[in-house]
Design a protein around this nucleic acid. Structure first.
Lengths: 134, 134
DNA sequence: TATTAAATGCAATAATGTTGCAATACTAAG
DNA sequence: CTTAGTATTGCAACATTATTGCATTTAATA
């Protein structure tokens, strides 16, 4: 983590370390709500600012499924340092059984060819049953 | 609209008609915020309840892009009447130029084959430049 | 270890969403 | 056409989620 933060020019503080370690601990994507429940004494504002900064620096990324709570997950090494240009070779998978959301690498990421539209980037959100629950 | 509402067992009221017509008027997906700005005299609670019900009945569907405002759009005829099982043969396209979100029909919707994961449904969110802005 | 820029914590406030309930409007039966 | 019964609306109150400004504290480095 120290190396990553240094590379991203982010100061290591006790609070940031704690938040980062929560992300590391859980393999699945987690919600702000969940992070709050994992922290004991904390300032909500500082948490929001920390998460916002993590997103801007490309340390974490947002995952949204319609009708579901927004989730956050650690980025792989290849994320750029702003929120708009995260680079994913993975899809997001929501398990209907355990309700967890996972980042899943896929070998050949689908390409989309739309007449009249110029597609720069696509995001794929999949729903179904995860490896553990299947 | 009368036919649709009747089929969905939804009472036609002045307010619901107004909200529905806003969706019809704009071809792109719209945010709650935008709907509020289109209405003059209205009760916010009634609006939230109307939108919630429209979603549950499969009249409209939610569209989410990470880092972007949640949007809503009319469903095509083939949507089931609950929020979880909307059936889309279209993708969602966010134009980086005009910032609008469109539902775009695509001929052969990609299929995803993940080892260990059972995929029931996928959502595709694309970003780029739309037909008008290109 | 002193300096200084960044991060934190608090207060205040904004935006977004929900619940309960009384008043009102609609629908269908007689 | 009227009435009973049910769904919808509008209000008050409240819950949740998020942001801003500012004084204080902390971390990096010279």
């Amino acid at each position: 983590m120290e190396a990553l933060f240094k590379e991203k020019k982010v100061r290591v503080t006790a609070f940031r370390r704690t938040v980062y370690e929560i992300f590391e601990k859980y393999k699945s994507a987690i919600s702000v709500n969940f992070i709050e429940s994992e922290l004991k004494d904390f300032d909500r504002i500082t948490l929001y600012r920390t998460l916002k900064m993590f997103k801007e620096k490309g340390i974490i990324h947002e995952i949204t499924f319609p009708y579901k709570e927004k989730k956050l997950a650690l980025c792989k090494e290849d994320c750029k340092d702003n929120t708009e240009t995260h680079n994913h070779d993975h899809i997001h998978f929501h398990c209907n059984q355990c309700k967890e959301v996972y980042c899943v690498d896929i070998p050949n990421f689908p390409h989309l060819n739309l007449t009249n539209y110029q597609v720069d980037k696509i995001e794929i959100q999949a729903m179904g049953t995860c490896a553990k629950c299947a």
